[in-house]
Design a protein around this nucleic acid. Structure first.
Length: 423
RNA sequence: GUGGCCGUAGCUCAUCAGGUAGAGCACCGGAUUGUGACUCCGGAGGUGGCGGGUUCGAGACCCGUCGGCCACCCCA
């Protein structure tokens, strides 16, 4: 079979699927534009150090999922596993933080994981970030913006919003200690993975999928009780804003996120229609990150959505109607002289009908086989040039859909004729 | 990294007590001299993922390996 193949988890996206992508990307782009967000384009490769310092040294992403390699000058580079780190680096480096910034970006991310439904090693995200705004009104804006996107895409019914506050770093540290104390005493009752996490990342035990572990957590200390006053107030305000906007949500006190830089507001849009990969969009506040990466202290908040997962959702819910890929016209010619005529006339037609999808037969073939290709192209009309047409200065226009038949049209009348016929 | 299921024509799949492989779709050609779709006829296309083993003989059984899917872990 094929010796040469794509790397595991790095998939080709074929012409059959790209209409979904184009439709999704177009909707996202227009929506972000309308909310006043500006697009920023970022490198796919950054110094490894950037990700270690932002995502966190002991996270799974940094420990075992990054594509890291040495550059020719022996500097350690990494294919970005997520977008926020690079975006923060860019706004610091480019001096964009003197005023609040609303930014977005789109592109591939890379994580060395075992592929499964809704997860691949090269995947695509759209990230949205807001810098320099500490108040929860911006939190609400981002959430309402994403909610509007689901409406535009027709998938509102398939997703729900989960919300939580994980407080300040200090509050979280205090809570972590309490949680560890509680769970340490019950270590034997935890599932194997959670026992391991007790040492590495105890907060993540909260969203364990193990039922027994979840039951054990019912009597555990609650993160909400450890929140600092500001986090409590901001979270209450965010909820009030969402209520006022009519945005429903579920407060999930066990929602924590995997990246170290989050604080205060965290949220996820989840679905039950994508198998095990329920999260379609997720984010939160990262007020300390800019300073941590060497910029002046600047609050930040953002989220990322997984494009593969959204495309899956779009196709599985049948919500999106991809653009038709059918041609409008297919141009057929028989004989060398007719081909000259066909090529020249078709180019002239493209000048006049630039919005039409015109496919010129290439590769020769019998008249019959050209007509078969014309039919397969989905074109509504075939333009036919043969000896007779060339000598008479006409073109045979044949309808390929429904009734219609064939008409002989003088070449000078073609543009007008086609304009009317293709309405 | 771990587990389950799976790997036969481009695609979807079948066959069989183990006796060197078929269908549908797609593709190519023909059925009027320059006319598609529908129908009919014909054709091309597979070292049965790869490598070992058992056997007189393996796509079918066994082992290994590679790959795919799904799940765990983690995450978008």
């Amino acid at each position: 079979m094929t010796k040469l193949r794509a790397i595991r988890g790095m998939n080709d996206i074929l012409p059959e699927e790209t209409p979904y992508w184009q439709s999704l990307e177009g909707t996202v782009r227009d929506l972000l534009h309308s909310y006043g967000y500006g697009e920023i384009r970022l490198p796919i490769v950054e110094y490894t150090e950037l990700f270690k310092r932002s995502i966190g040294e002991v996270t799974d992403i940094v420990e075992k999922e990054m594509y890291t390699f040495a550059d020719r000058n022996d500097e350690s580079l990494t294919l970005r596993p997520e977008g926020t780190a690079g975006c923060v680096r860019a706004v610091i480096q480019q001096g964009l933080l003197s005023t609040p910034q609303r930014l977005w970006y789109s592109g591939p991310m890379f994580r060395y994981e075992r592929p499964q439904k809704g997860r691949q090693r090269q995947f695509h995200q759209v990230g949205v970030e807001a810098f320099g705004i500490a108040s929860p009104d911006i939190d609400a804006e981002l959430i309402l913006l994403s909610a509007r996107l689901w409406r535009l895409l027709g998938i509102s019914d398939a997703v729900t919003l989960e919300l939580n506050s994980i407080g300040s770093p200090a509050a979280r540290a205090a809570y972590r200690a309490a949680l560890v104390e509680y769970l340490e005493a019950r270590r034997e009752q935890l599932d194997e993975d959670s026992q391991r996490r007790l040492d590495s990342n105890p907060l993540r035990i909260l969203d364990s999928k193990n039922a027994d572990t979840q039951a054990l957590l019912d009597d555990a200390p609650s993160l909400a009780n450890y929140l600092d006053e500001e986090s409590q107030a901001d979270f209450a305000r965010l909820c009030a804003l969402l209520d006022a906007a009519g945005q429903s949500y579920r407060v999930n006190p066990r929602l924590v996120r995997g990246l170290d830089y989050y604080n205060k507001t965290v949220f996820e849009w989840v679905t039950d229609r994508l198998g095990a990969q329920g999260t379609v969009c997720a984010g939160g506040r990262y007020d300390g990150l800019v300073e941590q990466l060497g910029g002046k202290a600047t609050p930040g908040i953002g989220f990322a959505m997984g494009l593969e997962r959204l495309v899956l959702l779009l196709s599985e819910t049948g919500a999106a109607v991809p653009l038709a890929q059918d041609a409008d016209l297919y141009v057929v010619s028989v004989g060398a002289a007719a081909e000259l005529e066909a090529v020249a006339r078709t180019e002239a037609l493209r000048d006049i009908l630039p919005e039409r999808r015109i496919v010129l037969n290439a590769g020769g073939g019998s008249f019959k086989s050209q007509m078969k290709k014309a039919d397969k192209s989905g074109a509504r009309l075939a333009l036919i040039w043969g000896e007779d047409e060339v000598s008479q200065g006409t073109c045979a226009v044949k309808s390929l859909r429904g009734e219609g038949g064939q008409q002989s049209v003088a070449v000078q009348d073609l543009p007008e004729y086609l304009r009317a016929a293709l309405v």
